[in-house]
Amino acid sequence: MALVTMTIAAEQRGAVPAERTAAKKWARLARPALGLVLPVTLAVVWEFVVRMGWASGRLAPPPSVIFQEFVDLARSGDLQRNTLVTLGRVAAGFGCGVAVATIVGAAAGYSPVIRRLLDPSLQALRAIPSIAWVPLFVLWLGIFEASKITLIAVGVFFPVYLGVMGAIQSVDRKLVEVGRAFRLSDVQMVRRILLPAVLPAYVIALRSGLGLGWMFVAAAELLGASEGLGYLLLDGQELGKPAEIVAAIVAFAVVGKATDWLIALAAAPFLRWEDVVRQE
């Protein structure tokens, strides 16, 4: 289990700066390859150690056992069903969180009055660890979907709200003035100046929001669920099946990374002008 989590951590750490800073070309090719050396070596060594009978591998299953568990879960359909349930919860929570955060963030970024009215309260709420809301949400909304989705939405809300508000506040006033000089209407101003100016920061906000969404779906499902990847974690713990836990963790990592990649991919055509800056 430790091996695989290390692999995931290494992947995530390697991928994000590689996209953002993009140092030199050779570094971009060499860095991910170098990052693979440690996890692959550890995996191979552990597999070897267990095969030789030097360790039982009962609590920390070797890669081959985890892979077999994965295949079994996929064959029975458990993997797909639980992944879809979790994905659905993230989608619902992320959708609600982003929708509210975008509207509130845009209003607070645009109007100083709204900002002064809302921001202090929101900043105070932000200081509360979101998991602390769970008992209240369960009392208010019950133990089923509504409380889970609300928790995810709350987690997604804050990074997106802060990102949108900051992005709108920092739109270059000189470019807005260009829009005025060319007599753009309010709608045109939003479409042709404000939206493109805000988009890069918005995409970053969406991606960090989605990351928190995945974090909170795991928390919500661990706290009580009858299906979902978090339920697989819990099931593995209660039945003493570490391979199932690791398989669920890997599934979390893969689906989480895939959704993040989808956002990046969808935004890429609109952010090509920024890539030029990155490559320089």
Binding site: E177, V178, W273, E274
Partner: peptide, 10 residues
Amino acid sequence: FQEPRLLPWL
């Protein structure tokens, strides 16, 4: 203007 003020996304 004194600066070009080109829109960087166009």
